[in-house]
């Protein structure tokens, strides 16, 4: 009885430590979850490269309603994007989900070369040259992947390279549940 209170306090502290140590401070919860995806209007990166004079068509939220998607912020200069790229390719090949790529603060030529040599899992690639759309979506370090419902709601955000584990655990069930 004498030791009951210190033991309880110790237990509480240990629980806090256990939870705290597992928590990665670099992964921040997104305030966008459950809300409508932030509005965007971005030029499409067309393949093959069109005439230099042609203005690329713009795409916005409305163009992607009707089916769930992944919106993947990536860049050719980003290391984590190289890591997740093969997995995104396998998702695209299997036709598991539509992946919209947002090329974040990247030079046109760089991303064309990058996707040209590695394959393009995106349908389509949108170019966020100045990073404004990234700010509106709360992107603080590529790669970041958002799960968007058919009605345009943000269901989930994954920070860092997308792994098969994260896909199976967090994203696949969401896509299966959302009509």
């Amino acid at each position: 009885m004498r030791y009951a209170i210190p033991l309880v306090v110790l237990g509480v502290l240990l629980t806090f430590f256990a939870v705290g140590l597992r928590h990665d401070p670099r992964i921040l919860p997104s305030p966008l979850i459950g809300k409508a995806a932030p509005a965007f209007s971005l030029p499409v990166l067309e393949f093959p490269q069109p005439e230099a004079t042609a203005t690329p068509p713009l795409k916005s939220n409305a163009d992607f309603l009707g089916k769930p998607l992944l919106v993947n912020f990536f860049a050719s200069w980003c290391a984590g994007c190289q890591v997740e790229h093969p997995f995104l390719m396998s998702l695209a090949k299997a036709g598991a989900v539509t992946i919209v790529g947002v090329d974040y603060k990247d030079a046109d030529a760089d991303v064309r070369q990058w996707l040209g040599s590695r394959g393009n899992p995106y349908a389509p690639v949108l170019a966020d040259l100045d990073g404004r759309t990234g700010i509106d979506w709360g992107v603080y370090g590529v790669p970041e992947t958002f799960v968007i419902s058919a009605s345009g709601q943000v269901l989930h955000k994954h920070v860092g390279a997308l792994t098969p584990e994260a896909w199976e655990r967090d994203i696949k069930p969401l896509l299966a549940a959302a009509p």
């Binding site: 860049a75 050719s76 200069w77 980003c78 290391a79 984590g80 603060k105 990247d106 030079a107 760089d110 040259l129 100045d130 990073g131 370090g141």
Partner: peptide, 14 residues
């Protein structure tokens, strides 16, 4: 540098 790579990121003049 590790996160963003030393080169590559485009800065748009505003």
């Amino acid at each position: 540098v590790a996160a963003f790579g030393a080169q590559g990121q485009v800065t748009v003049e505003k």
